[in-house]
Amino acid sequence: MCGSWLICFLLTYFNVLPTKPDEYGYTARTDLKVDAVTSAPWFHVPYPGQWGLPTVSVSSVLGMMAGVLASTMESIGDYYACARLSGAPPPPTHAINRGIAVEGIGCILAAIWGRGKLTHHLGLSLTMGPVHEQVGSRLVLQTAGVLMIVLGLFGKFGAIFITIPDPVIGGMFLVMFGMIAAVGISNLQVQVHAAQVHTDKPKNSFTES
């Protein structure tokens, strides 16, 4: 992802990419949202209600309920997928209940502070090394969470990521959701080409995605 971002930056810097919005390749430029970087503060502490009082309507409540139900079902599958990728036993029911409850609390806090919530990084991190070097530790994700909170206080740092071109973000999502789909298929132990594929190995799942 960083490599693609760098290539887009160089193509933008040397004015290789088109400058007209209706031309193919324009969205790959990294200077489309540079104003957000210049206007972002160097240091900012988010606080509850910084975007004003919340508004409530029937349509928004029903829409959010549908999104929460879909996210809950997805999270249940993610828990099993993460356990499989990290070599842990399947999570028991009470652990899944606690996970859904904590996710709900996290969504409420994120809404109060006006911030988003990021997940689904464990699968990608597990594919970056040899099988015997994989790490599925809560400490890794806890450390990443603390880093995100600290770095989120620096407005310029967060604004820089706004310059990531949409095609690069789209490629990242293709890999991420491809990994999720591949792990789901691996749970079914499907037969491909009349032979069982060893999809229990994260690298194979990454290749299939």
Rank of each mutant, 00 (worst) to 15 (best):
C2H: 10
I7Q: 07
L10R: 01
F14Y: 14
P18F: 08
T19P: 01
D22V: 07
Y24N: 10
G25I: 02
R29A: 06
R29M: 06
D35V: 03
S39D: 08
S39M: 08
F43R: 08
Y47M: 08
G49W: 04
Q50N: 03
L53S: 14
S57A: 08
G63N: 13
A66E: 13
A70H: 02
A70W: 02
D78L: 10
C82T: 11
S86F: 12
S86G: 15
A95D: 14
N97H: 07
N97E: 05
V102N: 09
E103K: 07
I105S: 03
C107N: 09
I108E: 00
A111D: 04
I112T: 12
W113T: 12
L118R: 13
T119L: 14
L124F: 10
G129A: 12
H132R: 10
H132N: 07
Q134L: 07
A144K: 13
I149A: 14
V150I: 15
L151M: 11
L151C: 10
F154G: 02
F154K: 03
G155T: 07
F157K: 01
F157T: 10
I164K: 02
D166P: 01
P167S: 12
V168L: 08
M172N: 05
M176I: 11
F177R: 13
M179D: 03
L188R: 12
H193V: 07
H193P: 00
A195D: 03
K201T: 05
E208V: 14
